[in-house]
Amino acid sequence: MIPAAFDYVRAEDVRTALTALADGGEDAKVLAGGQSLIPMLRLRLAAPTLLVDVGGVGELRGVRDDGDALVIGSMTTHDELMNDALVREHAPLVAQAAATVADRQVRHVGTFGGSLAHADPAGDLPGVTLALDATFSVMGPGGARDVPASEFFVDYLTTALRPDDLLISVRVPKLPGWRTHYEKFQQAAQAWAVVGVATAVRRSNGTVDEARVALTSMGSTPVRAHTVEAALAGAPATADALAEAAGRAADGTTPMSDGIASADYRSHLARVLTRRALEAATG
């Protein structure tokens, strides 16, 4: 299949990209790696009138150490996330989850920002940013603003980005003393997550001081499993306590039933995988 016709602008920098987007109106779209967008265009499930290609905008790419956080450019590819020394050291959860995205070819082209802006509830990286309490740096016609991860994912394939906004970078706090783990369950190697669990745990001696758990594919957006987190705060880091807390992972979630899995099964997986993720992050 071939996409429907559209106009195309290759942006030189953030400013020209924003101008082009503003001029393009409602039906203009950012083209990052294209790994989600182009398949949709090919199947003619989307038909934007203008694509603004930010692939050549150097300032959107790369990882910067910013003291207590990393700033990851939106155009940083999955492959770069996996292999970047700063990410591996300070945000290993991002590297670990990026490695589970799609396949090598897609990871060479698909970007962090594209994944987040696309906001597929089965995507691996949205949940990770939620677990890490990342902050999204957004630029629009009205200037720059920061959006916390907890407010970024609004609904199925919908974010706090407006059509003429550009996601510039994501600020990922370093979590010294924390251990993290991403547990993904797939039907086949190339498939998206049936359920995924991103965890970050800080513990001292035998006690969990603080834990964060974010779930992929358990609703129309990634969600934090707050009841699990609450149950873990101050709990002993024992298998029983972790299992007990993980048993609440599906509480308050609204998983979908679709061709891949029923809501029931997803809830069950959320509990099992949360336990496994917590075991890995505390073990």
């Binding site: 199947l43 039907q187 086949a188 190697a189 190339q190 498939a191 061709g259 891949i260």
Partner: peptide, 16 residues
Amino acid sequence: LMTGTFVEYTIPSSAD
């Protein structure tokens, strides 16, 4: 047909 592409119709890959 709900399994009309290779996204929904799961052909196993080498890793499977």
